[in-house]
């Protein structure tokens, strides 16, 4: 049972949040407006190529640099359903968890998936299926603490629940 199915867009190591959404667009937090400029400085065609449900695949340290939450917001609003990377920079990773963008760390998938492969992702199990290559990969599971935040639907909902219990 897969939650996510889409074509992949492939990037390298150290994709930083400045190239995911350049600072010149940070005078708004409007998701649709941010999405129009997603990846603009490293892949000007991304916005015209991306289809709803597509998956971004990258190497090491994805999302390094600035803490701007506009980065996962832009990626999600561009239609991307998940990011798979060898590793994530920590602020981007927590921003993704907090805002509900699935971020899967899987070195094997990052090394094997090619651009424009079709992949399916089962979020509960972390299983990634490469339908083009006929291979499957297993992403690192979220620690239980983070699963609670994901299960609540993100940090806003999680915090609302915590406050209600007080």
């Amino acid at each position: 049972m897969s939650d996510i199915r889409g074509r992949t867009h492939l990037y390298g190591d150290n994709v930083n949040t400045d190239v995911i959404i350049p600072a010149r667009y940070l005078t708004t937090s409007d998701a649709a407006e941010l999405a129009r400029h997603c990846m603009e400085d490293i892949d000007p065609e991304f916005v015209s190529k991306v289809e709803p449900g597509d998956v971004v695949v990258a190497g090491e340290n994805f999302g390094c640099g600035s803490s701007r939450e506009h980065a996962p917001i832009a990626i999600r609003a561009a239609g991307v359903s998940a990011v798979i990377a060898k590793t994530f920079a920590r602020i981007f990773f927590r921003n993704a968890i907090n805002t509900g963008l699935p971020a899967l760390a899987c070195a094997e998938a990052a090394a094997s998936i090619k651009g424009d492969d079709e992949v399916a992702v089962d979020l509960a199990s972390g299983r990634i299926e490469n339908l083009t290559q006929g291979r499957t990969y297993q992403a690192e599971p979220f620690p239980p603490f983070l699963q609670e935040i994901v299960a609540a639907g993100g940090l806003v909902a999680y915090t609302r629940k915590r406050l209600a219990r007080r």
Binding site: G154, Y158, T159
Partner: peptide, 30 residues
């Protein structure tokens, strides 16, 4: 701090780290 360079304050022997805006929102609330 909702800014990646919040780590600056470690120079004073504090634990300081950058987070996102939603983290800041939750911390403001709790």
């Amino acid at each position: 701090g909702a800014d990646s360079h919040t780590c600056t304050y470690g120079a004073l022997g504090a634990f300081a780290t950058g987070v996102g805006s939603t983290d800041l929102a939750a911390t403001m609330a709790t």
